[in-house]
């Protein structure tokens, strides 16, 4: 296992490259997921407010 981690002496380069990739790709999925939740909350908030204005 340690031989695998060592990557023939290039461990730092290979794993930093893969590390950056995981970061970028995860962010790429996380961001829309959170935005989606935020948009849903915003819209329901606006609609509830809209309903309240209507019946005042």
């Amino acid at each position: 296992m340690s031989q695998f981690l060592e990557m023939g002496g290039y461990a730092f380069y290979v794993w930093s490259a893969y590390g950056v990739s995981t970061l970028v790709l995860c962010y790429g999925l996380l961001r829309p997921y959170l935005d989606h939740k935020k948009t849903l909350r915003e819209i329901s908030l606006k609609r509830r407010q809209h309903k309240r204005d209507l019946n005042d």
Partner: peptide, 28 residues
């Protein structure tokens, strides 16, 4: 991955653009 990320972002964009649409009601 691109397809997934694109679909997620498109759903979000669609929701924002159509927020007054009736179908958004059922989604909520």
């Amino acid at each position: 991955y691109f397809a997934i990320a694109l679909l997620m972002r498109s759903r979000n964009e669609l929701l924002q653009r159509e927020q007054n649409g009736r179908w958004v009601e059922e989604v909520l």
